[in-house]
């Protein structure tokens, strides 16, 4: 790996330290804003533990930053189907996240059958399948199946949305 790539990688891990630090500050400020009259029955109060957690987060953030600057590196997680020799493939991940967001926006309004179809079809597409029609049929079938399966089998009524009355 070139030195530029290495230093970029090191820098991106500083983002983790930043996130930890930010989380620590948020937890601290939130706890600080609580009003607690001293009570004998609860000497610890609701603030103590958040303060400890905030301290832990901030200490970790600082130590992680030092560790990264000294050349420490988190080991990316391997797995059965994971090949770490190439960098993260954002062209797959971002459309996947897009399909996911679309589902969130659609689910209450259009209903699960439609949003679930969009989610599955979009994800399959994002992951590189090019059998548009076959995938579409599978997506619709899967959404309908889970809709009725949850309703009849588990007694959970997923939203019908636009198809209310048809399903």
């Amino acid at each position: 790996m070139s030195s530029l790539a290495t230093s970029l990688k090191g820098r991106s891990e500083l983002g983790v330290a930043l996130l930890l630090g930010a989380a620590g500050v948020v937890v601290f400020l939130d706890a600080n804003g609580l009003v607690t009259p001293y009570s004998k029955s609860d000497p610890v109060g609701p603030k103590t533990v958040p303060f400890i957690v905030a301290a832990l987060l901030i200490v970790c953030a600082v130590m992680l930053a030092i560790n990264v600057l000294r050349g420490g590196k988190g080991e990316a997680e391997g797995g059965e189907d994971v090949d770490l020799s190439h960098p993260a493939d954002w062209k797959t991940v971002l459309p996947l996240a897009g399909a996911f967001v679309l589902n969130i926006l659609l689910i209450d309004w259009a209903g699960w059958v439609i949003s679930g179809t969009v989610l599955f079809w979009g994800s399959v597409l994002a992951l590189g399948s090019r059998h548009y029609i076959r995938d579409g049929i599978i997506s619709v079938a899967l959404s309908l199946l889970t809709f009725y399966g949850f309703y009849l089998g588990l007694g959970i009524a997923l939203p019908a949305g636009l198809l209310e009355g048809i399903l």
Partner: peptide
Amino acid sequence: ALWVAAHLRR
């Protein structure tokens, strides 16, 4: 799932 999707074995 997102992690694996980003690093699929080629």
